[in-house]
Design a protein around this nucleic acid. Structure first.
Lengths: 139, 139
DNA sequence: TATTGTTATACTCTATAACTATA
DNA sequence: TATAGTTATAGAGTATAACAATA
């Protein structure tokens, strides 16, 4: 009896392999901006003008809330983010980008979203298929 | 004038999004075996019976060689890996798995390569396309 | 001289536990 | 009592620089 989805495991193995092959670039990329990979991640999570509660950052990073304190301390010391007290619930502190932070975020994202050469080498039709499949994957 | 590969950036954005959505699971997965994500990575890089020079680990991890010393110290203290002096070049120390390490590696890999549900939900033909494209990507 | 791995040092990331202020 | 964030503490990952042994 054949399994119903014989290619699932292979697809996952290939994705992992691709993931690991790209992973090595992230620290160097972050370092270009004097950021750690996690700091990049945090910057990415805050869209300008849309403050995010600190607890939500911890949740998305899947880390303890206490880490976010130090993480934000460092970003705030560099003038990239601001802590805002929430009106509704005064326990909550929401993070917003400073103008400097918003500019840096834009540059970092621009740099991060530059596709690797391997992707550019795919044919247009392969790229279209990949986009279609990834959209389904992320639903 | 249209760019030649209009879907490249979108494909990359989607891949990044997928990576980040999966990334959060790795620390928890590693923790199931009392390993850090990087320790998992190192275990993964050593195939049983095929010793790997420490320098090659540093290279693959894209980190400084000095980190590998401590990393391996901890794995060795747990009886998972062994340092072997190379015959040809006595400066080189090659890493090999102990029987315990080889067993743990197998279990970790088995667990890591279990595809996420989102992948299983793709149709067989979508999975075949994905595999084909990823193979090209990794060439 | 150059290279492999180690040591010393400093900083960041991470978790746990105890704490403060608010709900 | 419960929750959001902080502080204190400890362990692990990371880089730089100086070092030993070997090439």
């Amino acid at each position: 009896m054949k399994p119903r989805t014989p290619h699932t495991c292979e697809a996952w193995e290939l994705l992992l392999k691709f993931f690991f092959s790209q992973r090595a670039d992230l620290p160097a990329l972050a370092a270009e901006f004097d950021l750690s990979p996690v700091q990049c991640h945090v910057l990415r999570l805050i869209e300008p003008g849309q403050p995010v509660p600190m607890g939500r950052i911890a949740e998305t990073l899947a880390c303890d809330a206490s880490n976010v304190t130090g993480l934000v301390d460092r970003l705030e010391a560099r003038g990239l983010v601001r802590r805002q007290l929430s009106e509704e619930d005064r326990r909550v502190k929401a993070l917003d980008l400073t103008p400097t932070g918003a500019r840096l975020r834009a540059v970092v994202l621009e740099r991060m979203t530059k596709p690797p050469d391997s992707l550019s080498r795919l044919s247009p039709s392969e790229q279209r298929s990949l986009v279609r499949i990834l959209r389904r994957l992320l639903d």
